[in-house]
Design a protein around this nucleic acid. Structure first.
Lengths: 208, 208
DNA sequence: GTCTATACATGGATAGAC
DNA sequence: GTCTATCCATGTATAGAC
């Protein structure tokens, strides 16, 4: 598995994470991989394709690595706990950083847009599964559109990752605030059946 | 006000919004401004300084433009409504897009990090003011750390803006889910004093 | 598959005439 | 303040030897 192609993919992830998309040139990546610059084009055709391939592979690997923990989470609170853990690991490993960089690049590069949306979709699918299990018996269940909420969580996650890059203390405060939502849903979950029904009725009324 | 410096600043915002940070070279910007390329360096010293200057100016202008509407909002629900409006306007005008691009670039460029954090801080300050007014009398008041929540909202906003660039339908669903939070806070706000006290006690218990 | 060498475009930045 | 001209680094990509 330490052949040239995978060396290039690994190097790409390292370079994008540390130097950003702007610093991810064929020469820099090849140097980081310890291989010849021309091999980028021989094996991948273009930088774009190397970037998207690396992004796809890395995301698949990370999602698979976290699948167990996602499966173990069965409430919004536990989902947020997994998110916190994922956030710290990814900060060190730098894989969500790669996704964020490519997402920014994809805004103006149609060649990146599709693959990046796909990679994001892998994360979103995991989040959606957790929400489907965890929210089903909450009074909020039919208030929230699960697909939308999953996309919101994923977007916020990316935004937080980027914000942390320019204000670490601020991002920590933001994540703490996010975690406080968990307490709220836990409380709503612990309501007795009467209070629960009353809240549910009020919610129904408020949303139309 | 249509002198060379402001022509360059305006062109910079246009170019970053449409071509991304990667496409924002001195030559491209100067061409968009209709001025000579060498004037970028004469007036601003470097591209970085032009970028940060343009970002600062644009953000100040946009925040000032929205100050009235932020002031009019006095609940999380109304804040979200302003956010929706801001989101649609900014998509067309492209000023939050500029902030997102620079934020991504700032991850690996220390020269951008400070100014971008500052610009984001302007938005965060506005959000914080709304939260201070709107959350004060909610049962959630002392559950949420306002500075943290403001930063969370700002980060999520940036993340959504980026996500919309690769999946417009998905982003719309995410924003709808976000708006549903407004209904929840409204309901909590409408609770009677008894239910309110009970919920508050439960929350207090759950967070320690 | 891998290397060297190279073509060719674009980038930041400066010198010096006007 | 503005222009032309230019230096030099870096970028993508390819041709052709090994």
């Amino acid at each position: 598995m330490a052949d040239t192609k995978s060396k290039l993919v690994d190097a790409t992830l390292r370079v994008v994470a540390t130097e950003g998309l702007a610093g991810a040139s064929a020469r820099v990546i090849a140097a980081a991989a310890g291989v010849n610059q021309a091999l980028v084009f021989y094996h991948f055709g273009s930088i774009d394709q190397l970037l998207t391939q690396a992004c796809r592979q890395a995301t698949q690997a990370r999602v698979a690595l976290y699948r167990d923990r996602f499966d173990a989470a069965s409430s919004l609170g536990e989902l947020l706990a997994v998110g916190r853990e994922l956030h710290e690991t990814e900060r060190a490993e730098g894989n969500v950083t790669v996704l964020a960089q490519l997402l920014a690049g994809a805004q103006t590069d149609p060649k990146l847009a599709g693959p990046v949306a796909e990679a994001l979709g892998l994360w979103i699918a995991e989040i959606e599964r957790v929400l489907d299990r965890g929210l089903a018996d909450l009074p909020l269940a039919d208030l929230f559109d699960r697909p939308g909420l999953a996309r919101l969580v994923a977007s916020a996650f990316i935004g937080l990752e980027l914000y942390e890059g320019v204000d670490e203390a601020g991002a920590t405060a933001a994540i703490d605030a996010l975690t406080q939502f968990a307490a709220l849903t836990q409380v709503l979950d612990d309501l007795g059946p009467v209070a629960r029904r009353a809240l549910k009725a009020k919610l129904r009324k408020a949303t139309r």
